[in-house]
Every structure is written in structure tokens, then in C-alpha cells.
């Protein structure tokens, strides 16, 4: 049970809002020391894992493109494009992106989206632009809320779409695990039984985007028709 002290360090550190890098590093050191690993082994572990997991930071390589195109008006053009489409609303754009992200992930095309590739340069500006076209200049807090929802569309679509594809990492991991336990599973069987949750995720998150449109309307047109409960909920999301 002593091994859980590292988890405690993480929870306390995050609650006290200490810099997450320090929290995570101290938690790692503590966990290693409790497991009686010598200090040089712990350092080796830090070095090895950091190098092995460099792939998580490869988005750095596409930032020069994004940054350069932003200098030439990429975000402004994305907002522009959307403002010409009369039926476009923030919620509808995000529902469409969620649907496409989940569908393409289910077909194994998980790299068609992403926060650095799609959300920052295209989806978030479009979602903001649609609200701006309707209500004029947006308060900063509203922009932040729309961006956070845009990022959530990418995550929800990716997570609950990808396991429907039979050759994705998660399915292969589970297949390997059950093979070791001598329990019969098939990639197709696991993928098919993921469909109910995948559809639920699409519906639930789409409803929340639909309601986002309503909360934007109330927020930006002087709060007519808003119930106190809705207002409180909107406030906590900021």
C-alpha cells in the first residue's frame, strides 16, 4: 500500500496548484525510492522514458507551418469563410467536426485531426467566427469557452471512434492481453461491441454542443429567457 504515496503526492500537488512538472517529478522520485530503487536507476528511468516518449511532442515540427500561416491571416480567413455560411453556428460546426473526427477515426484515419493540426488553426477559429458573425465582438471568456469545447470535440471524437477500427492499438493490446489469459476474443467482436458507446458519445456530446449555442445566445443577447440554473451552470464552465 506504500506505493500509493506517489499517487497522493500527485493529487495533493495538483489540488494545491503547484507546477505540475515539479509535482510529477517529485511523485516519480518518491515512488521510486519507496520501491527501493537506487537513485541512479531512478535517473535512468527518467532518461529512458523521456527519450522513448519523444513521439508525444512531435507536434513541435508542424508549429512553424501553423505559426507562419497565422502571420498571413490563417485564423482570420477561417473566421471569414464561416461568416459567409448563414446556417453555421458554433454548435453546428463543432457537431460536424465531432461527427467527422469520430467517423474517420473509426475508419482508422486517426491522423486526420489533432489539436495542433486542426483545432488551433481551423476548428477553433471557425467556431469563434460563427459566434462572432452572429453576436459581434466576443468577450474573452466566451472565446475561451468556445475553444475549450473545440478541443473537447477532437478528444471525444478520437477516443470513441478509434476503438471501432479493428487494427488500432487498443484492440491489439486487449487481444494480446486475453490471449495470455487463454480467454477467446476477436478484434471484430471487440470493435462491434464498442459501437453502442461510440454512438452514445456522439449523441451526448452533440447535445452539449447544441446547448452551447443556446447558452451563447443567452449570454450574448442580454440573458433573455435564461433560467437561473442554466446561468449557474454556464458560469461554472468558465
Amino acid at each position: 500500500m506504500w506505493s500509493l504515496i506517489g499517487v497522493l503526492v500527485v493529487v495533493v500537488g495538483f489540488v494545491l496548484r503547484i507546477n505540475p512538472l515539479l509535482v510529477v517529478t517529485v511523485a516519480g522520485l518518491v515512488t521510486g525510492l519507496i520501491a527501493r530503487l537506487p537513485l541512479d536507476k531512478i535517473l535512468t528511468q527518467f532518461g529512458t522514458s523521456f527519450v522513448v516518449n519523444r513521439y508525444m511532442s512531435l507536434f513541435i515540427l508542424i508549429l512553424p507551418v501553423i505559426g507562419l500561416m497565422e502571420r498571413y491571416g490563417l485564423k482570420e480567413q477561417a473566421e471569414n469563410l464561416v461568416s459567409k455560411v448563414k446556417v453555421a453556428t458554433t454548435g453546428r460546426i463543432l457537431i460536424l467536426y465531432l461527427f467527422l473526427r469520430e467517423l474517420t477515426s473509426a475508419l482508422g484515419l486517426t491522423s486526420l485531426g489533432g489539436h495542433a493540426q486542426m483545432v488551433r488553426p481551423l476548428i477553433a477559429p471557425m467556431a469563434e467566427g460563427a459566434a462572432e458573425a452572429k453576436y459581434g465582438d466576443l468577450p474573452e471568456s466566451t472565446r475561451y469557452k468556445i475553444r475549450a469545447f473545440a478541443a473537447s470535440a477532437d478528444n471525444v471524437g478520437l477516443f470513441f471512434g478509434e476503438d471501432i477500427f479493428i487494427a488500432i492499438g487498443a484492440i491489439l493490446l486487449m487481444k494480446g492481453f486475453f490471449d495470455q489469459q487463454h480467454i477467446a476474443v476477436t478484434p471484430l467482436g471487440m470493435a462491434v461491441w464498442g459501437i453502442p458507446t461510440a454512438l452514445t458519445a456522439l449523441v451526448v456530446h452533440s447535445i452539449r454542443f447544441y446547448r452551447l449555442d443556446g447558452s451563447l445566445r443567452r449570454e450574448l443577447t442580454g440573458g433573455t429567457g435564461a433560467t437561473t440554473g442554466d446561468q449557474a451552470r454556464t458560469a461554472t464552465k468558465n
Binding site: P20, V24, Q45, S49, R54, M56
Partner: peptide, 12 residues
């Protein structure tokens, strides 16, 4: 942070 968290996961 993601790379540091992966390290923590391994130590956990």
C-alpha cells in the same frame, strides 16, 4: 509534461 507523465506512469 506529457513526456514526464509517461515517466511517472513507468515508475508507478
Amino acid at each position: 509534461l506529457p513526456q514526464m507523465l509517461a515517466t511517472l506512469g513507468a515508475l508507478f
